[in-house]
């Protein structure tokens, strides 16, 4: 329809009308800066990542082991004060193939976010990370994966101390 219209009513605006200041607007660039005290629960988790292992916490009342560890159980509100070392392996609960980057660029090779239920944690308890060393078409829900860590000297106590999770070759496959 609109392709037939040669001249739209009104005054058309182009991007240059804004950049050249013909249309007035105020531009501003924020410089907000925050820190987050990680506290007891997440602080312990990050310290463990720096050491190269995964840490969870356990609620005796609910008999649940969760990761990342937290100081309060969200189900029963009891304190969670026992910490458990967990495997760095797990099972893909869900995943996606992302064709748009963080800063909104289109890409052809997708990024691979996944929720991984960690072995030793209660069912449905996992961590969000990315997958690697795998073709997108080979990924499936229920796939067994393992963390690929940064070298010890490069780890800084951050979720990025794990580079990604890669498939574990299942016995017999």
């Amino acid at each position: 329809m609109t392709s037939k219209i040669k001249n739209f009513p009104g005054t058309p605006l182009s991007e240059s009308d804004f950049t050249e200041g013909k249309v007035l607007s105020i531009h501003d660039e924020m410089r907000p800066q925050f820190a987050w005290d990680t506290g007891i629960g997440i602080g312990s988790y990050l310290a463990a990542l720096k050491e190269g292992y995964l840490l969870g916490s356990h609620c005796k009342t609910c008999e649940k082991t969760v990761i990342p560890p937290r100081t309060v159980c969200e189900w029963c509100f009891d304190p969670m004060d026992s910490y458990v070392r967990l495997e760095d392996t797990g099972t893909i609960n869900t995943f996606s193939l992302c064709y748009v980057t963080w800063d909104v660029q289109r890409i052809t090779e997708p990024e691979l976010p996944a929720v991984i239920e960690i072995d030793g944690a209660s069912p449905l308890h996992g961590i969000l990370h990315k997958l690697g060393e795998v073709k997108p078409e080979d990924i499936h829900i229920g796939m067994k994966v393992q963390a690929v860590w940064k070298p010890a000297e490069e780890r800084e106590g951050a979720i990025t101390d794990i580079l990604y999770f890669k498939p574990i070759k299942e016995a017999g496959s």
Partner: peptide, 19 residues
């Protein structure tokens, strides 16, 4: 300053006492 507690843990402490 309260570097030993996250904001969530700060809130939890207050909540536990209030309940």
């Amino acid at each position: 300053v309260s570097p030993e507690l996250s904001y969530k843990e700060l809130m939890y402490e207050a909540a536990v006492k209030a309940y």
